[in-house]
Structures are given as structure tokens and as C-alpha cells.
């Protein structure tokens, strides 16, 4: 009986403590420190998982390449002549820039990071990266891969950080279509697909158009690819179009990413 009373009091104390310590930023700092402590275990686990995944992929790729070697040789010859042509175009571009005295836009600083874990919550799409403050990661940085948008950094610890993917229900990015230049907001809905909302009814967007970041709001740099429109329909409110977007990236296959220091560059240039 005494044990039960102590036990109940202890539980009550813990629960009260939990409510009392709720304040902005507390969760972020404690998550950051805990993940930093667990980082070696997460890195080991991810290395093992990646090894298994790679083995499967490499075996499949080996057989595909073996069967397609003739095609590959033709493709290589075509690409080599394309490279020569593009080098000429680049030289001409440099000459013309010099003539017009155009300043080269500086690329945002990028920090490479590896994904070492994914949050085990069914309705959240967040990943844990193996770099934090000490590695140059800051809150709000855009996460990209091969010029395609992945998400944004939301929490930073000493040597780990947490990023929210575009497919998360809480993720938003201002976007523009590549051809018709229609503006809207790309949002995640927890599924592997994305939706582009608030497109004007007369915007003439079509299935197959590429969607890029518009740079509005300053969260993400302009011109980063998000995906491709695969379906169009009217919004339930009837005032806008709603586009279903197939992301350019397979979010389940991410391993290494780049974090862009775009936001800080914009602040320092104004």
C-alpha cells in the first residue's frame, strides 16, 4: 500500500514536471542534445541499413548494365559530343557576360549532410541529419539534392539536426509552374505526393508542367525543382485549381543531402 502511494505520487510528480517545463525552445534543445548523444548508434544503424539497401540496388544495376552495354556505348559517344558543344556555349556565355558587365550571382553556401534516421511517427515526415551547429547547419536552411527541393531544417543540435520533408503535412513552399508561370503553394499531405494549391482558375496550367520554387517569402531559393504536375482538378471551394504533384525526388531513398545557406545570404545582401 505504501509502495502504491509512493508510486502514484512519483507519477503525479513526473506529469506535473512535464507540464511545468513546457516553454518555447525547450523541446528543440533537449532533442538536439539527445540525438547528439545517440548519434554514434544512429550512424551505425543507418550504415547497416544503407549497406543492405545498396547491395540490392547494385545487384539489380549490375544485371541491367550488363544487358544494356551496347546502348551505353552509343549514349556515351553522343554525350561526349554534347559536352564539347556545351563547352563552346559556356565560353561564349562568359564573353557575352563580360561585354554586358553582368555580375555573377553567387551560389548559396552549401553544407553536405547524411541522413542517419527518420522519425518513427506515421503522420510525420522528418529526418535526422548527421550535422548540427558545429557543422554549419542553421535553422531554416533549405535541404536539396541535385537541384531538387527536399525540405527545410527545423531543429538544430550541437552535432545533429532535424529536417522536415516536403511531404509532411506541415510543410509549405511557395511555387511557380515552369511554362505558364502560375503561382501557388505546394503543401505536403503525409502521402508520397504533393499538392499545389491556390492556382488561378484561368492560369492555363497543364499536366506535365514542372513546378519550381518561386522564392516568394524568402524560405527557399528561386528556381529549385519541386516536381511535375500529374493531375488537375478544382478546389473544393471552387475558386481555385488544385494540382497533384509527383515529387522530383523519391523521399524514401534519400541518403546524402545538401543544406543551403540561402536565407542568411539574402539577409546579408539587403
Amino acid at each position: 500500500m505504501r509502495f502504491k502511494r509512493t508510486y502514484v505520487l512519483f507519477l503525479f510528480g513526473i506529469l506535473s514536471f512535464i507540464f511545468l517545463i513546457q516553454r518555447p525552445g525547450f523541446g528543440e534543445s533537449i532533442h538536439g542534445w539527445t540525438l547528439t548523444v545517440l548519434k554514434p548508434a544512429l550512424v551505425t544503424g543507418t550504415a547497416f541499413a544503407n549497406g543492405v539497401s545498396h547491395l540490392k540496388v547494385e545487384m539489380a544495376r549490375f544485371w541491367q548494365t550488363f544487358h544494356a552495354r551496347g546502348e551505353m556505348e552509343d549514349k556515351l559517344a553522343r554525350l561526349e559530343s554534347e559536352v564539347i558543344r556545351l563547352r563552346e556555349v559556356e565560353k561564349e556565355n562568359e564573353r557575352l557576360q563580360g561585354l554586358l558587365d553582368l555580375k555573377e550571382t553567387q551560389s548559396p553556401k552549401a553544407v553536405a549532410a547524411r541522413i542517419i534516421g527518420r522519425d518513427p511517427l506515421p503522420w510525420q515526415k522528418t529526418v535526422i541529419l548527421d550535422k548540427g551547429h558545429h557543422g554549419g547547419i542553421q535553422k531554416g536552411m533549405a535541404i536539396v539534392l541535385h537541384q531538387d527541393l527536399i525540405g527545410r531544417i527545423v531543429e538544430v543540435g550541437p552535432s545533429t539536426s532535424r529536417g522536415i520533408l516536403l511531404t509532411d503535412v506541415d510543410s509549405r513552399a511557395s511555387a511557380i509552374t515552369s511554362e505558364k508561370r502560375a503561382q501557388g503553394i505546394v503543401a505536403g499531405d503525409g502521402t508520397p505526393m504533393l499538392e499545389m494549391k491556390y492556382l488561378e482558375l484561368d492560369s492555363e496550367v497543364s499536366v506535365g508542367e514542372t513546378v519550381l520554387t518561386s522564392g516568394v517569402g524568402g524560405l527557399f531559393p528561386k528556381g529549385i525543382r519541386i516536381g511535375k504536375i500529374v493531375a488537375l482538378e478544382r478546389d473544393p471551394d471552387g475558386l481555385h485549381l488544385l494540382a497533384e504533384i509527383e515529387p522530383a525526388i523519391k523521399f524514401s531513398k534519400l541518403e546524402e543531402v545538401l543544406c543551403l545557406d540561402y536565407f542568411q545570404e539574402e539577409l546579408s545582401s539587403t
Binding site: L11, L15, G27, I30, H31, T34, D119, L121, E155
Partner: peptide, 16 residues
């Protein structure tokens, strides 16, 4: 609670 992206305490309360 220490590792997952939640306000701190939610998992503890729910699981306990």
C-alpha cells in the same frame, strides 16, 4: 520524448 519530434512529455503521458 527525448528523440521524437513532439512537444516534450506527450509520449510519456500517453504510454504511461
Amino acid at each position: 520524448d527525448l528523440t521524437v519530434n513532439h512537444p516534450f512529455g506527450i509520449e510519456t503521458i500517453a504510454v504511461v
